[in-house]
Write a protein that binds this DNA or RNA. Structure first.
Lengths: 267, 267
DNA sequence: CGAAATTTTGAGTCTTATCAACGCCAGTGG
DNA sequence: CCACTGGCGTTGATAAGACTCAAAATTTCG
């Protein structure tokens, strides 16, 4: 199972790249055969730095991982979240930076891919280089959206928007079942992501539940009213750069405007 | 003056690239001779979108410009600021995205550089490609820092941190005179940048002024106590990826820890 | 089953937002 | 030269949203 999961994650990652970039058969094969070594991150749900001067990028195989920044007093802000099939710290390939510590939200396994291997690929194939770069830029686009949300929107909009985003991203990876998907985060971790206290997250979730928009229970999110949630979250998925509806069966959740026809999968 | 300023801006931009990347003489010459056309942005200090599907990137020649995101109700969040010698929308080279509207904080002139020209350069020289990429990633690093600040820090820290950052960036470009530099932003624009209301910005600035840390008047910022300001702003310039102290006379403002010896230029 | 973590709820406080008014300053036009 | 104007900065009063502290209820896990 270990080896096969890393393959599955690479396949997922490749699928993501194909959503915004064109890669020929050689490129695809090269990505599929990228070498990697497994790394298990703590079941303790707590902070765990992964390498101080990373010589690897991480591919999430299983679980859920975030990058975070920490203030001296220990307060944290999670600045990005990575589902299985997402790459973490890809930018470390090109920019030597003090790596943001990683937080595993739950027991998480990562396939570490050596910088060396990815660099070789990027040199061989400019299409792969471009695809990786776009992946970085999309990450940045998401951070920008989060900045907007936290800077200008109240707790209810923030929380609703967040679940819209994760729903879209999970759906694009085929990780939703109907209107439900797994999101193993505590309310404290949600707070660290959304710039809120856990108590306020709790109250906001209650409010959204009472409005029949959304239920969160035991790490599972169930969306009760997709249209309502996108309106509550003022959500427009464009910044995620997912393929348009025409591009595949998975895309119809994430049309730019929450079109009435969209939430077919939410029944 | 028109033509020469564009040259000066390119020179400044090149200097910035050299802070984190190695470029040989050919590369430098190629960048210096990049073609551009001037664009004047409004003196009205208000929103002005620059091109819907940009075929250019923008190089700030003069003035101050921001990217922003806007909510339906018109509330804005400025997600990045660009001083003269900074590139705007560089990521549009590689990622076709709904361009963030640009806001000119004051009368601003931009040298528009065609995508085509930059792409050619990047293809010719992988060193240039890498340098441009790093520039994008540094932008993203700044956005991430802002996300942290807005998500987790109160108004006083945010404001102090912001002025530390701008001081460092202006200083790296040789745009400070002693402890003073130009920052032609209204308090409303500061609020849109920091996720605060203009009224609260005003009160926070007063507080910092009373603490003798900082004075803002008529678009000029004067730092009264650099060490105090970095402490108040919990500032560590690492995320800016400016050259270290050893790399040149301009760098000593921005040592990672606000070392007692650092603020030589602030006297 | 019991311990620890997490979620939920309540009460009170604080930071920040909102609303409103006034003063200052630069530019304009008589 | 001066009144007028509009944008911006400043200040006050009040309200709202989010935080803090605390404790109880629930779930998770050994």
């Amino acid at each position: 199972m270990a080896q096969s999961s890393a393959h599955k994650a690479l396949e997922l990652y490749l699928k993501g790249l194909l959503g915004h970039s064109v890669l020929d058969d050689d490129d695809r094969a090269a990505i599929r055969s990228l070498p990697s070594t497994k790394l298990q991150l703590d079941a303790t749900r707590n902070l765990s730095a992964a390498g101080d001067r990373p010589a690897n990028v991480g591919l999430v195989v299983d679980g859920l991982i975030g990058r975070c920044r920490k203030a001296k007093d220990g307060v944290r802000q999670i600045v990005s979240l990575h589902l299985p099939g997402d790459m973490v710290n890809l930018s470390s390939l090109m920019l030597a930076e003090a790596p943001h510590p990683l937080v595993a939200m739950t027991r998480t396994t990562i396939a570490q891919i050596p910088h060396r291997a990815l660099r070789d690929l990027a040199v061989q194939s400019s299409a792969i280089a471009a695809a990786l770069l776009r992946d970085c830029l999309i990450d940045a686009s998401i951070v920008t959206q989060w900045l907007f949300n936290i800077g200008r929107r109240n707790a209810r909009i923030r929380v609703a928007h967040f679940f819209c985003e994760i729903a879209c991203r999970a759906h694009a990876k085929g990780m939703t079942q109907g209107a439900t998907f797994l999101l193993p985060m505590t309310q404290e971790q949600l707070g660290e992501t959304l710039g809120l206290t856990p108590v306020h997250v709790n109250r906001t979730l209650r409010q959204l539940r009472e409005e029949k928009l959304l239920t969160v229970s035991r790490g599972f999110v169930t969306i009760g009213d997709w249209d309502g949630l996108t309106i509550a979250g003022e959500f427009d998925s464009a910044y995620l750069h997912l393929p348009r509806s025409g591009d595949g069966p998975l895309a119809n959740l994430c049309t730019r405007e929450a079109s009435p026809a969209a939430p077919a999968h939410l029944n």
